[in-house]
């Protein structure tokens, strides 16, 4: 008997091919809804640190596409962890796995319902991991999720992480998006 997860999740893979559109580069790989099927998948794909630059993994609840435009995401935002180049070799894979375990295990108390998914961006200038939530105005849910996320990754209290509304990221005029919340 397998151990059912609260939600069914979908793994998406993005590979940057400049001859194609952003949406054409995004592929749904597979879905899983048990602990055992999660590991069967995780143990058989490349760890994030071995992906080429420009690739993403996204793990989202079934029915939510990993893009701002999805109706579950359009009013939401993300808790963002930015990593240094060195951290790719020391912490990236553990951080990503712990992020996945937080979301599929519903580790955010009553606020797990606000979680849409998680994304890892592998980039030459610095990798990023984010948890996306559905409503950037739900202060209580957003801050609780942020605190649990930090805890789940074992980040010390002195490290501050920020939450950015997708609407602000989408309309920014430079590479800096203001933080709506920090924990």
């Amino acid at each position: 008997l397998k151990h059912p997860l609260e939600n069914r999740w979908a793994l998406w893979f993005y590979k940057n091919d400049k001859s194609k559109t952003w949406q054409e580069n995004l592929r749904l790989i597979t879905k899983f809804d048990t602990v055992e099927d999660f590991w069967a998948l995780y143990n058989n794909i490349k760890v994030a640190s071995k992906l080429s630059s420009g690739c993403d993994y996204s793990v989202f609840k079934d029915g939510i596409e990993p893009m701002w435009e999805d109706r579950s995401n359009k009013c939401g935002g993300r808790w963002l962890i930015t990593l240094s180049k060195q951290q790719r070799h020391t912490e990236l894979d553990r951080f990503w796995l712990d992020t996945l375990l937080c979301i599929i295990g519903e580790g955010f108390d009553v606020y797990s319902a606000d979680v849409c998914g998680a994304v890892i961006n592998v980039r030459a200038k610095g990798d990023k991991i984010a948890i996306w939530t559905t409503n950037a105005e739900n202060r209580e849910a957003v801050t609780c999720i942020g605190r649990k996320f930090k805890e789940g990754l074992g980040l010390p209290a002195k490290i501050v992480i920020g939450y950015q509304a997708h609407a602000d990221t989408a309309t920014k005029s430079n590479s800096i998006t203001k933080n709506k919340f920090v924990v």
């Binding site: 151990h3 997860l5 609260e6 602990v35 055992e36 143990n43 375990l101 295990g105």
Partner: peptide, 20 residues
């Protein structure tokens, strides 16, 4: 009830054989 699993519980299944 809600199916909540903590990190240690989930990690315990990583290398479980699929069939026993």
């Amino acid at each position: 009830g809600k199916k909540q699993y903590d990190r240690e519980f989930l990690l315990g299944f990583q290398f479980m054989p699929a069939c026993v």
